[in-house]
């Protein structure tokens, strides 16, 4: 079985958002780049499953669409335990553009399972996984919070609105994963970091695709009015404010 994990290279989640060029571009000054947290959980689960030989996972590949500056993040994925990496050499324009690039790669390089995180920490689109699946005319399962392999079949737990379902799916399939699939992201060990330098990181030329959306500019949230403080002895006053001022209870 071959697993492909779609990785997004995103600013560290503690980064404060700042913009430049008349608020049309994200200010990357001093930003730490990380593997998108949900993609990292997908990678973690794939590696956990691979350590059990009975699951017969031959290979875990990570793929990203981005410039050379995404490579340190790819190396980090290799250090954690991916076998090889693919970078499609073009700046991402929108989710449709990214998914089309990945789908094109998959047409000549088939995989059995394709993972993507449920959203990216930058554009919060929740889109690439499902889009790749539709490009490939493959089934997809979204909001996956548990994954096991039994007798060559995948056993999936997915969250539905108000519950959970056990699902099985024909392969090849795309799984969009979220918290729960793995508990904690795996951390690279020193040996992994050494080995990562020798693992293949293949750079692939992009195909021509037209983006369907375009960001015009960014805005910062409206500042909130100051918090109204209430003395701990006066909880009654708080309840009164919630009832009569905020009108929420």
């Amino acid at each position: 079985m071959k697993i492909l994990i779609c990785l997004s290279n995103v600013p560290d989640t503690t980064t404060k958002a700042k913009f430049v060029n008349d608020n049309t571009a994200f200010d990357t000054t001093g930003v730490q780049w990380i593997i998108n947290p949900w993609d990292e959980l997908a990678l973690t689960r794939a590696i956990e499953l691979k350590t059990d030989a009975a699951n017969t996972i031959e290979n875990i590949t990570v793929i990203t669409v981005g410039g050379k500056d995404a490579e340190p993040t790819m190396r980090k994925a290799l250090a954690i335990g991916a076998d090889d990496a693919v970078r499609i050499d073009v700046e991402p324009k929108d989710a449709y553009f990214v998914a089309a690039q990945i789908a094109e790669y998959l047409k000549s390089n088939p995989f059995d399972l394709i993972f993507s995180g449920i959203e990216s920490a930058d554009y919060n689109g929740s889109a690439v996984g499902g889009m790749v699946a539709e490009f490939l005319n493959a089934p997809s399962v979204s909001a996956v919070s548990g994954l096991n392999i039994e007798g060559g079949q995948v056993k999936i737990t997915r969250d539905i609105d108000g519950g959970q379902e056990e699902v099985s799916v024909e392969m090849p399939a795309v799984l969009t994963v979220q918290k729960g699939i793995a508990k904690e992201p795996m951390i690279a060990a020193m040996r992994g970091i050494m080995m990562a330098r020798k693992k293949p990181l293949n750079v692939v030329a992009p195909v021509e695709v037209e983006a369907l959306t375009e960001i015009v500019n960014f805005e910062m949230p409206q500042p909130k009015p100051a918090c109204k403080m209430i003395e701990p002895e006066n909880v009654k006053e708080l309840v009164d404010l919630l009832q009569n001022e905020a009108k929420v209870i």
Binding site: D94, A95, G125, S126, V128, E134, S140, I160
Partner: peptide
């Protein structure tokens, strides 16, 4: 809706109809 079901369907529909997606 931008919920579990919407996140499962909207991206696929975007490709099927070549329709740009504004998520959330």
């Amino acid at each position: 809706a931008q919920n579990n079901m919407g996140k499962a369907l909207a991206p696929r529909l975007s490709v099927k109809l070549k329709a740009g997606l504004g998520a959330g």
